[in-house]
């Protein structure tokens, strides 16, 4: 079994995706922000400013390490060099949480830098569960798996995404990261009801929530096509879905992600504040 861990859990409060341009602001006054999330791959250098900033922040804030490059859904074997780098990071940083995505990004050595979709089949399930077992064994801790934003479906899929995720957790013991914006984006794109999706999601296994912005387009048939861009404010329907979800699920550590066209700190802090206000009544 996994080693017992002594890592502090993420607080039931707002966090933000850490961007280096906000370092001074966060150190001066984090406002409503109680924890930070980093992308693992940005902190795999040997030293310099990124590592120094992270060491400094980790003394003040619980840190969540969020991987974007492990390619857990990849058809090939996991990149053991990358897994070793991840282990090194987790070993020295001792983050409160580690999460990755239900997606693939590497195939035949080419890393495509996007979270690419998977068919929900028994074969995918077996592979994803094996990879998660390998990650959890290597890191010596449980991970959270995030539901993806998807833009298309596979004709070969045999099960709903929520059933797929539930079965992955059953086989591996991993927890889940519920990205409410991804739910909204995927359900709109797949013509599903996001409330049904949440109702079918194993909420008791959720260890963290993500919120972020998306872009709205249309496909060539005039159907809505939402794109998970992380470049704007969270939209009102996603806030509403979040508020309904935390009432049903209870409070969870909640992260606001803003990765492109990153705004000045007050704008991001205001988003975190909005999440904190939604969490407050549920915490009582």
């Amino acid at each position: 079994m996994l080693d017992a861990t002594t890592h502090d859990a993420l607080p039931l409060a707002s966090g933000v995706g850490y961007k280096p341009q906000h370092f001074s602001d966060i150190v001066a006054d984090p406002g409503p922000v109680r924890w930070l999330e980093i992308h693992a791959e940005n902190y795999m250098g040997d030293g310099g400013r990124p590592i120094a900033q992270l060491r400094h922040l980790a003394e003040r804030f619980p840190i969540s390490v969020h991987g974007v490059g492990l390619s857990i859904g990849g058809e090939g074997t996991l990149d053991t060099d990358h897994l070793a780098r991840l282990r090194h990071l987790v070993d020295w940083l001792k983050p409160a949480s580690f999460s990755e995505h239900l997606a693939w990004s590497t195939h035949d050595t080419a890393f495509l830098n996007d979270l690419l979709p998977l068919p929900y089949t028994e074969a995918t399930l077996t592979r994803v569960a094996e990879h998660i077992d390998q990650v959890q064994e290597t890191l010596g801790r449980e991970m959270l798996l995030e539901n993806p934003s998807t833009y298309l479906a596979f004709a070969e899929s045999e099960m709903a995404e929520t059933d797929f995720l539930r079965e992955v957790t059953r086989r591996t013991g991993c927890g889940l990261l519920l990205d409410i914006n991804n739910v909204f984006v995927s359900c709109t794109n797949q013509k599903l009801n996001p409330r049904d999706y949440i109702a079918n999601f194993p909420l008791d296994l959720v260890g963290e929530v993500h919120l972020g912005g998306h872009d709205a387009q249309e496909d060539e048939h005039g159907a809505p096509l939402l794109i998970d861009s992380h470049g704007t404010e969270v939209v009102d329907p996603v806030w509403t879905l979040y508020a309904e979800t935390v009432v049903a699920m209870g409070p969870r550590p909640t992260l606001v992600e803003w990765d492109n066209d990153v705004p000045d700190w007050p704008v991001l802090a205001a988003e975190a504040e909005r999440a904190a206000r939604i969490l407050a009544p549920v915490l009582q």
Binding site: L112, D114, Y151, L152, F154, Q190, H221, A223
Partner: peptide, 29 residues
Amino acid sequence: DGLIDPEGRRAGKRFDVYRNNVVVSLSKA
């Protein structure tokens, strides 16, 4: 074949989102 929209039609622009994400994000890097 086999990548579809909710009506079962072949994904066109939906697949292009991935094409665009890959090339744009790497070009930006």
